[in-house]
Design a protein around this nucleic acid. Structure first.
Length: 490
RNA sequence: CGGGGUGUAGCGUAGCCCGGUAUCGCGCCACAUUUGGGAUGUGGAGGUCGUAGGUUCGAAUCCUGCCACCCCGACCA
């Protein structure tokens, strides 16, 4: 992270956090562990927001907004929840500053809050406190609400994009009349995330459930999608929680059922964050910078003119105008980089750094021949193609790139997915190629913790599609009836 | 929060041991030549050496406190 922007490609580190900065997405801010997301990086987040938001609406959800500050007393109503988050909360204790007489600005001790406010690390408590007033009858259910917001978790250690003290996310909070309905919602939203990750981000994910030890604080069941990064470490890319009646009981949220009985409401919550940006970067980037899947890229096609004279430029402009229009009709976003302050080679490198999927270079020579140079970011290849039918070509190429990026990541995961049957083998794979390790586990938290202590690997999930299989725990030799996935994780 | 490290121009750095106000590269500005893969030449601008104290005739350099960042650990989306 200490390395900054340099001008030459060979200086780019394989180390992804460096890459993030150099790709002009984000930098650390002066505030501990937070990040400044630069415009180009934010444009990528906005694309994610737009696509996810549409899916949320399609699945019946609405957006709402709840307060940033949570009274401490709300927070402590759900025992497991408060225990899970207590060690990482930013707390507001005063509401005023003053001049101490010597010109220094200090906290005004007279302005101490009666009750401290917690800067939300997640909004279950304040939302369920609100839902109490919204729900009386089964007719008020379900409530399907999502919030786009920032949250703060005062982590001991931060990592750009993956674990910043403040991060942007969406959190869905739903209320249901029955257990079944809530579980269905939990699974539905996990599917939304998984499809988004695979179809849009081109990041293959494994759908699974967390072990009791890794479960969200306050949940009965935590579902997750787990992605694999290019360095062989796993990354939790999204979670969907079945909260049971825990929060309804803590906040006294009851409804009268069809049968006239007073019952507690069933709940879910689910979220993905700017961590997805990290997933995207670490899954696809190479030494030349970002590789953005076309469906996500804010700019899908960049056009670079190559010219010596104004006449040549004018001729190219006419062609580019027409091409741009044709692409826009096909809903393809285009950037015409007609800066005369940079040379073509510089522009090529710069747009590669930013991960733009397709580049069209067109110069006087092309204008004579009726051709352009068409380059794709994912394979770093280029070819000379006819101007005739170019927009259609590009449209197909974008699809091919999307597919190729996904396949590449899928192949990588397939080659980093290992079944092992002994602890020795387990450690060998873990220290070697890394990746997901599928093995038997005796189902106890104690074993899970011991393995983590010894190897740093954690159980990423119990895959949803895992089949029953008799075996013995690689650590204790006790019987097990299915495999789970271990990995070192971020 | 524990262990280790770093902080010098927009970025990356040398200098620190052994005190005498700062090196180099990239970038930036001007002009010229250039322009199909990160141009070249010449000239130029840019620095409270993280910060607050201390020692000293004199501190980037030695000492102390503080702050920030990075790495490892514990914690975690």
């Amino acid at each position: 992270m200490s390395k900054g922007i340099t001008s030459r490609a060979e200086d780019y580190s394989q180390w992804y956090n460096d890459l993030v900065i150099k790709a002009d997405l984000a930098e650390n801010s002066a505030v501990r562990g937070c990040m400044v997301i630069k415009p180009y990086g934010y444009a990528i987040w906005e694309r994610m927001q737009a696509i996810l938001d549409k899916r949320f609406k399609e699945t019946g959800h609405s957006n709402a907004y709840f307060p940033l500050f949570i009274p401490k007393s709300f927070f402590s109503k759900e025992a497991a929840h408060v225990e899970g988050f207590a060690t990482e909360c930013a707390v507001v204790t005063h509401y005023r500053l003053k001049n101490d007489g010597t010109g220094k600005i200090v906290v005004d001790e007279d302005a101490k809050l009666e009750e401290e406010l917690i800067v939300r690390p997640t909004s279950e408590t304040i939302i369920w406190n609100t839902y109490r007033g919204w729900i009386e009858s089964y007719r008020d259910l379900p409530i399907l609400v999502n919030q786009w917001a920032n949250v703060v978790r005062w982590e001991m250690r931060t990592r750009l994009f993956l674990r910043t003290a403040e991060f942007l996310w969406q959190e869905g909070h739903t209320a249901h009349a029955t257990r079944e309905e809530a579980i269905e919602e939990t699974e539905r939203m996990l599917d939304v995330y998984a499809e988004f990750a695979e179809n849009i981000l081109a990041v293959p994910v494994i759908r699974g459930r967390k072990t009791e030890n890794e479960r969200f604080a306050g949940a009965l069941d935590t579902y997750c999608i787990e992605a694999l990064m290019q360095d062989g470490k796993a990354l939790q890319a999204g979670t969907s929680h079945f909260l049971g009646q825990n929060f309804a009981k803590a906040f006294d949220v009851k409804f009268t059922s069809k049968e006239g009985k007073l019952e507690h409401v069933w709940a879910t919550s689910w979220g993905v964050s700017t961590r997805l940006m990290g997933a995207l970067i670490m899954a696809h980037s190479d030494d030349q910078g970002l590789v953005l899947p076309p469906k996500l890229a804010p700019i899908q096609v960049v056009i670079v003119p190559i010219f010596k004279t104004e006449e040549e430029k004018a001729q190219i402009d006419v062609f580019v105008d027409q091409l741009t229009n044709e692409l826009k009709i096909k809903n393809i976003s285009v950037k015409y980089d007609e800066r005369d302050t940079q040379r073509p080679g510089f522009k090529f490198a710069e747009w590669e750094l930013k991960g733009v999927p397709v580049r069209v270079a067109v110069g006087a020579r092309d204008m004579q021949n009726g051709t352009v140079e068409l380059a794709r970011r994912d394979t770093q290849t280029k070819e000379t193609v006819a101007q005739e039918g170019l927009a259609g070509n590009i449209e197909q190429l974008l699809h091919a790139i999307q597919e190729n990026i996904y396949q590449k990541a899928l192949n990588f995961r397939a080659s980093h997915f290992t079944e092992v049957n002994s602890y020795d083998e387990f450690k060998e794979v873990l220290e070697g190629k890394g990746g997901f390790i599928s093995c038997h586990w005796d189902g106890t938290t104690e074993t899970e913790k011991r393995v983590k202590e010894e190897t740093k690997a954690t159980i990423r999930c119990i895959p949803l599609d895992v089949k029953d299989e008799e075996g013995v725990c690689i650590f204790t030799g006790k019987p097990s009836n299915r495999r789970v996935l271990f990995a070192k994780a971020y």
